[in-house]
Simulated assay, not measured.
Amino acid sequence: MKARFTSLIVSAVVCAMVMGGASFARAGDESETAELLIALLKSGRAVVSEHQALINDPSKGNKGFTDEFMAHQVIEKFKAKTRVDLSRPNGAPQNGVLLALLEAEREVVLEGQPVINKQGVAFKGFIPAVFARKSGEKFYKKTGIRLKLTGTDYRFPGNKPDDFESEVLRMFADSRHPKGQQYAKATMVGGKPVMRVMDPEYAGPTCLTCHGGPKGERDITGTKKEGWKEGDLAGAISVVVPMR
Rank of each mutant, 00 (worst) to 15 (best):
T6S: 09
A184F: 07
A16F: 10
M188Y: 07
L149W: 02
R176E: 14
M1A: 10
F65P: 02
F126Y: 14
A71W: 09
I145E: 05
K124P: 07
G191E: 06
G216M: 08
L208N: 07
F78T: 06
S175A: 15
T33V: 14
H211E: 07
L36S: 08
F24C: 15
E217F: 07
T209P: 01
D57H: 00
T221G: 01
E68V: 15
D162W: 12
F69K: 06
V115E: 07
H211I: 11
N117D: 15
E76H: 12
G158M: 10
L40V: 07
D163K: 15
R4T: 09
D232T: 08
F78M: 05
G44P: 03
K215I: 01
A12C: 06
I38R: 04
A203M: 13
V74Y: 04
P114V: 11
E76L: 13
V13G: 03
P157K: 13
A234V: 00
R83Y: 06
S166R: 15
A122L: 11
G204R: 15
F139W: 07
K124Y: 05
V130H: 02
V74A: 05
A39S: 15
G227R: 09
T206V: 09
D232W: 06
N56H: 05
T221F: 07
V240C: 11
V115D: 02
I127C: 02
H72K: 14
S87D: 07
G112K: 13
Y202S: 02
A46F: 01
V197A: 04
P157N: 05
S135G: 05
L102D: 06
H51D: 04
T82C: 06
K77N: 09
I127P: 00
L41D: 01
V239S: 04
G44F: 08
G44I: 12
L233P: 01
R244Q: 13
S49P: 00
Q52M: 07
I75N: 03
E217H: 01
V240S: 10
F164A: 07
A3H: 14
Q119M: 14
V109R: 13
G112L: 14
S87V: 10
E111W: 09
T206H: 05
S49M: 09
T209W: 00
S11W: 05
R83A: 09
D67S: 14
E167H: 13
E201S: 12
V47M: 10
K124V: 09
G120F: 10
R146A: 11
A12L: 13
E50Q: 11
D67P: 01
D199N: 12
T209Y: 06
K160Q: 08
M171S: 10
P114T: 11
A132E: 08
L102Y: 03
K192W: 01
S166K: 15
V108S: 04
G227L: 06
I9G: 01
L54S: 03
A46S: 13
Q182H: 10
I237L: 13
M171K: 15
A39N: 02
K224R: 12
V74K: 03
P58W: 03
M195R: 12
E107M: 13
G44D: 09
L208E: 04
G61M: 00
A27I: 10
G231C: 07
K60V: 13
G44C: 10
